[in-house]
Every structure is written in structure tokens, then in C-alpha cells.
Amino acid sequence: MGGFLLRKAGAALIVVFLSSIVVFIGIRALPGDPAVALGAENRDPAVMAAIRHSYGLDKPLPVQYVKWISKALRGDLGLDSRQLPVGHTIVTRLPITLELAFLAVLVGTSIGVLAGVIAAVRRGKLSDHSATATALVGLSVPHFWLGLMMIIVFAVDLHWLPASGYVSFRAHPLGNLEHLLMPALVLGTGLSAVLMRQTRSAMLNSLSADYVRTARAKGLSERMVVGKHALRNSLITVTTVIGLQLGALISGAVITEQIFVIPGFGRLTLDAVNERDYTLLQGVVLVAATGYVVVNLLVDVAYSLLNPRIRVSGASNQ
């Protein structure tokens, strides 16, 4: 397992490095002179030159990159247009999104995996058809629209849940869950639809595998055959799917937070674009890309723990 994870970690480092270059160059490619943006109203050439110098903008790009990345590694992502430290802003906004994402993944995987297993076991029966149809609907429905519909029904008409906003869990645990229930459902819908389909097909695969026939031939109960022998191998496939859905989850978080007015990382991203705050945008994108790679690495760890062929090295006596 060590070798596998070491390789994965090495690849992740390379990806983070390349991503940081993409972010750095991307921001430099923005139209307009950053010094103009930073100088706000003041267009005096002397002030401009001073700003360029103080931000190191007069140095060659590689030097600027090294300076930027070494600061970023220490958590210093610069100051935004309101002169607030970007790193600090991100650290305050990120937990909100992480909570939302956690709840969404919880909802998405539990519904998706369960429905997928049931559909595969009852293949061709009514429950399979309805689960498959529901998943197809879940895949085709724009989830942000689902959010709008939920707001109309549960907030505007029924007044059961708040339409928007956020309170922290520590300040008001119940209120926190009330505010996050609809967003988590909206964000989890797409994931559960994808996972349902993947789990179903992985389960159908394992259920027709030779080792499941062996398990049946041993006289094991159907619960053991499905719940132990088939499911364990299907989960290995499903884990990798969760990793691949991460990008969709990040995109989904942005629009979900927009609809439900949640002051998380996603809204911060949109604010950065709308306010043309490039330092903030740079920090946000860098953190998003790094986060993506880190979570994927965690998925690889989970994968290797589930898969003994990776955890334990191969035959010693061929």
C-alpha cells in the first residue's frame, strides 16, 4: 500500500504545482493592469510605479511566481480590494461550505448506494424500475431549479423552512440544520442519482461474478451474499466514482449557495468575480484546486483500504 499511496501523493503534488501555475498565469492573463485595480481611483504614474514595485509587479514572472507561491504556502494569499487578508476570509467561509458538502455527500451516498443495491438485487422488478427512473430524473433535473421549486413549496407556501440564510451550528444547532436541509438535499440530488446508477451497475457486475456464485454454492444466506460478498467489491468501484463527482460537487456548491444565500466559499467565488477582486479570485481558485486534489488523495486512501489487492502486495510464490 505504501508504494501505491506514495505514487498517488507524488502525482497529487505535481498536479497541485501545475494547478498553481495555471492559476498564476490565468490571473496575469486578466485584462487590465492589476496596478490600476489596486490603485483604485489614483492614476498618478508615480503612485502606479510605487504600487508595482511594492507588489513586485516590476519583476519577471518566474520571480513573481516563486514569491507568490512561497507566501501562499505560508498561508499568506495577499490582501483583497478591501485590504482584508484573503487567507483569513477563506478560512472563515470554508467551514460553511464544508458542512454543506458533508451533509450533501451524506445524503447523496446513503440514498444513492442504498437505492442502487436494492435496484440491483431486485433487477427487473418494480422497485428496480422506479429507482432507475428516479435516478434518471435526478440526473436530468437541474438541481438549482429544484432548489427554487423547494423554496416555493417549503418556504413560500408552507413556511416550513427558511428560504435563505445561514446560522452557525454552535450558535443555533437546530436552526443550522433547518437552514442547510434544503441546500444539502439540492446538492446531494445529483450525487445520489449518479451513485445510484453506478452502484446498481457495480452490484449487477459483482452479483454475476464467479465469487458470488461460490458464496451461494456455500449455502450462505442471501443477506450475506449481497451484503458481504457483492457489496464489498462494489464499494471499491463506487469510491472512485465519489472522487470523480467532486468537481460537480464544487460547481454545485457555488450555485446552491447562490440560491439559498449561504455565505460560504461558493458565494465568495462569485463575489470575487462580480467585484473583479483578482487577488481574492486567485486565492479562491488556488484553494479550490488544492482542495480537490487533497480530497481525491483521501479517496485514493479509502480505495486502497477497501481493496486488498493494493493494501497487501501480490503473490510471493508464483
Binding site: S19, G247, I250, T269
Partner: peptide, 16 residues
């Protein structure tokens, strides 16, 4: 690397 930038992030960048 491409995967590390979800389409919304790419869109945000391109729009910017």
C-alpha cells in the same frame, strides 16, 4: 490538472 478546475471555476475564470 484539468479535473482540479471544475467547469464552474473555469467558467468563472473565462468570464473574468
Amino acid at each position: 490538472v484539468l479535473l482540479a478546475f471544475p467547469f464552474l471555476v473555469v467558467a468563472v475564470g473565462l468570464a473574468a
